[in-house]
């Protein structure tokens, strides 16, 4: 059941082939990780999905529909949400406002209907706030609800960003290094939430991750890439124990010594 597919995607920057005919398939409801050394092209894949770069060749298919003709802001409308390695929040707004902004694509209104605060606009507003409160509950953000994001610790900001993505009610959630900068306890919480998201919300997750322990703990299937090329795609254990993957991560000699 292919839910999201990359078919033979390639992109170059100048002379550098950042991605070279990479293909992978994410099934509905699974947690899929992309791993690889720094500079392997992992985040580039995300940026291509989000249409910040145009692919030179190949195509992404979401539920069979190509993303190639969408504008950047329309990707959210297609049900794809994302978090960032370096956190991209609205820093001078409260946690609640950030979550409500996640609802933007779910609401339809124009200046006139808002000016008179028509029934549908009221309903959307109430609905948005309810959804935001649900997420605050789910991610344990109650204590920070009305605080400005800029004043929050890093780990909490990461959680808010996850919450904002969830507020979009995505069908596909892209997480770019979700555990980077988190301590052990926070990573455990995240693993727990991911499990809930998968089981209860049925969200398909595609993530880029360096923390192998975390990948092992949470992920169903893995794609390993290096230098823009696929090493292997498969079940988590199979990929993590593959000699080529170990070589890419640890270097030739270390594998021989191990």
């Amino acid at each position: 059941m292919a839910f999201f597919q990359a078919q033979e995607i390639s992109i170059s920057f100048g002379g550098l082939k950042a991605l070279d005919r990479v293909s992978f398939t994410v099934n509905k409801g699974e947690i899929f990780s992309i791993i690889g050394p720094n500079g392997a092209g992992k985040t580039t894949i995300f940026n291509c999905i989000n249409r910040f770069y145009d692919l030179d060749e190949g195509v992404f298919l979401l539920d069979g529909k190509s993303l190639s003709s969408a504008k950047t802001h329309q990707i959210a409308d297609m049900g794809i949400a994302r978090t960032f390695q370096n956190i991209e929040l609205f820093k001078n707004m409260t946690v609640l406002d950030n979550l409500i902004l996640g609802r933007h694509r779910k609401r339809r209104s124009n200046i006139l209907t808002e000016m008179f605060f028509f029934k549908p606009v009221q309903r959307q507003e109430i609905n948005s706030r309810e959804k935001a409160e649900e997420i605050i509950d789910f991610l344990d953000l109650e204590a920070h609800r009305d605080q400005l994001v800029v004043n929050l610790p890093y780990g909490v900001q990461k959680t808010v960003e996850l919450g904002r993505a969830l507020a979009m009610e995505p069908t596909l959630l892209l997480l770019d290094e979700p555990t980077s900068g988190l301590n052990m306890e926070e990573s455990e919480d995240l693993a727990f939430w991911l499990d809930d998201m998968k089981e209860e919300l049925g969200i398909t997750v595609l993530m880029v991750e360096h923390n192998m322990r975390f990948v092992k703990q949470t992920t169903d299937r893995v794609l390993a890439i290096d230098f823009g090329q696929t090493i292997i795609e498969g079940e988590t254990n199979e990929v993590l124990n593959h000699p080529d993957v170990m070589r890419a991560y640890l270097g030739e000699e270390n594998v021989c010594n191990a």
């Binding site: 950047t72 802001h73 959210a76 609205f90 933007h104 694509r105 808002e114």
Partner: peptide
Amino acid sequence: YSRMGTAMRATSQNQLAAVYMGISV
């Protein structure tokens, strides 16, 4: 308070994130 006004404030704070929320810059 309005949806569009909030979107405009958000865009002035972080354009990239705004685009990801589906806001047309």
